[in-house]
Amino acid sequence: MVPQQETFALPVAAAMRTELPSVAERTVAAIVVEVPGYAEAFRGQMGRKIENAVQLALGGFLELATGGADASRPVDPAIEGAYALGRGEARTGRSMDALLSAYRVGARVAWRHLSETAVAAGMPAAALARFAELVFAYIDQLSSASASGHADQLAASGRVRRRHLERLAELLVTGAPPYELITAAERADWTPPRTLTAVLLPEAGARDATAVLDARTLQVGEDLPGAEPSTERAVLLVPDAEGFARASLLTVLSGRDAVVGPARPWQDARSSYSRALRALQLGLSPDRDATVDTEQRLADLVLRADGEALADLRAQVLAPLDGLGPGPREKLLETLRSWLLHHGRREQVAAELFVHPQTVRYRMGQLRELFGKHLDDPQTVLELTLALGAR
Rank of each mutant, 00 (worst) to 15 (best):
V2N: 03
P3H: 09
T7C: 11
P11F: 03
V12A: 02
M16L: 11
R17P: 03
A24T: 03
V33S: 12
V33N: 09
E34W: 12
A39K: 08
A41L: 15
R43M: 08
G44C: 09
G44Y: 09
G47M: 11
I50N: 00
I50E: 00
L56A: 09
L56E: 02
F61M: 03
L62G: 01
E63M: 11
T66I: 10
A71S: 08
A71W: 08
D76I: 15
P77I: 06
A78W: 05
G81A: 12
A82N: 05
G86S: 11
E89Q: 15
E89C: 11
T92G: 06
M96C: 04
L99Q: 01
L99H: 02
L100C: 05
S101A: 15
A107M: 15
V109M: 10
A110W: 06
W111H: 12
S115D: 02
E116T: 13
T117M: 09
M123W: 04
A125K: 08
R130K: 14
A132M: 15
L134T: 04
L134P: 03
F136R: 14
F136G: 00
S143H: 05
A147I: 09
A147D: 02
S148H: 13
G149R: 09
A151M: 15
D152F: 14
Q153Y: 08
S157P: 12
V160R: 13
R163F: 02
H164R: 15
A169Y: 07
E170D: 14
L171I: 05
V173D: 00
P178T: 01
I182C: 11
T191M: 12
R194T: 05
V199M: 06
R207L: 13
A211C: 13
D214Y: 09
L218E: 00
V220Y: 02
L224I: 09
A227P: 10
E228I: 14
P239G: 01
E242H: 10
R246I: 09
S248P: 07
T251Q: 12
V252S: 04
L253Y: 02
L253H: 01
R256W: 05
D257K: 07
P262M: 12
R264L: 07
P265M: 06
W266H: 02
Q267T: 13
A279H: 03
Q281N: 06
G283S: 07
L284R: 03
S285H: 12
P286G: 03
D287W: 14
D300F: 13
L301Q: 03
R304T: 04
G307V: 13
A309I: 14
A309D: 04
L310D: 00
A311P: 07
L313I: 10
L313Q: 05
R314P: 01
A315E: 15
A315P: 09
Q316N: 13
V317Y: 01
L318E: 00
A319E: 11
D322W: 11
L324C: 04
P328S: 07
L340K: 05
G344R: 08
R345I: 03
R346M: 06
R346K: 07
E347Y: 09
V349K: 03
V349F: 02
V355R: 11
H356R: 12
R361L: 08
M364F: 04
G365E: 02
D377F: 12
Q379C: 07
L382W: 12
T385H: 07
G389R: 10
R391S: 03
